[in-house]
């Protein structure tokens, strides 16, 4: 008898079962039962946000170069586990060609965002002209905890394309994985757990988007939402609930396999701009300045 794997959640660097004890069957495109996944609950979201909040400050405080190294390490680990991802995608019904393309583009995207870690600040930050003797400058800062509903069309590429720009900018994330194709997301968690990403920076839940999203969008300790390809009714509800604590809601209806699905703008989507006025003094009677 074949024993089907039950994929668990990824919260705070651990792999717990859902607090609710529920699971659901993961089916291939032909309707074959290939694995089980945890059916996450409200309380799983609560636990995940709690650890994400705890992990965020120290993650953002790491040097940009260190964050770059860590994201690059993800690419290396993905490469090493390429076979496992291909196997899972084929079991789900992808052909080898499209599976290979999805995994390879995902790896490229990791390398791409690793490179941005110590560069986006220079491009998003500005020195502003002001009409007083102040040195006035603006710098990007991480927003905090970002709730992600991963792309429901791709198994891993959309997930990575949404999560990486958020974390490279110093945010921590709570992700609701693709409901029908959750396997690669949890396998990606195994990558994260072995690639120096501190526990709690990325938290991954599987289950019903409709059930879990309201908890995330109404959560007062979540600062922004990254949503992809949601039904307009679900999206509208999430936007309405997000108003309570002025969450920024980014909704993407893009094809994540395109090269336009990566870029600086996806990083700046989860950055706040902080502007500082610094008095410019005259030093020793000379023409002061900076």
């Amino acid at each position: 008898m074949e024993v089907l794997k039950t994929y668990k959640l990824y919260i705070g660097g651990q792999f717990p079962r859902t607090e609710s004890g529920r699971s659901y069957a993961v089916l291939s495109q032909s309707g074959q039962h290939i694995a089980n996944a945890c059916q996450g609950s409200k309380k799983d979201i609560r636990n995940a946000v709690q650890v994400a909040r705890k992990a965020q400050a120290s993650w953002a405080a790491k040097t940009a170069f260190n964050r770059s190294q860590i994201i690059y390490r993800i690419a290396e680990m993905l490469e090493a586990r390429k076979g496992q991802f291909l196997e899972e995608l084929q079991a789900l019904g992808f052909d080898l060609k499209s599976a290979t393309q999805e995994v390879e583009t995902s790896i490229d995207r990791c390398v791409y965002y690793a490179g941005w870690a110590d560069k986006y600040q220079a491009l998003l930050g500005t020195v502003n002209p002001v009409a007083s003797s102040h040195f006035n400058f603006s710098v990007p800062e991480a927003m905090g905890v970002v709730g992600v509903v991963a792309c429901q069309q791709t198994a891993i590429l959309g997930f990575i394309s949404q999560v990486l720009p958020a974390i490279i900018g110093g945010n921590s994330v709570v992700v609701i994985a693709n409901q029908k194709l959750p396997l690669c997301a949890i396998t990606f968690a195994e990558v994260l757990a072995t690639s120096d990403v501190p526990g709690g920076v990325v938290n991954i839940l599987t289950g019903s988007v409709e059930e879990m999203l309201p908890t995330l969008s109404g959560h007062m300790d979540v600062n922004a939402l990254s949503l992809a390809q949601l039904d307009s009714a679900i999206l509208e509800k999430a936007q309405t609930e997000a108003v309570e604590n002025l969450k920024r809601v980014m909704s993407y209806s893009i094809d994540f396999s395109q090269s336009t699905a990566q870029g600086l703008s996806y990083i700046s989507d989860f950055q706040e701009i902080k502007t500082t006025w610094h008095p410019v003094e005259q030093i020793a009677g000379g023409a002061g300045g900076y």
Binding site: V49, G218, H219, M220, D221
Partner: peptide, 9 residues
């Protein structure tokens, strides 16, 4: 409120 809260408030 039925909503999870943030220590920030």
């Amino acid at each position: 409120t039925g909503k999870y809260q943030s220590a920030a408030y």
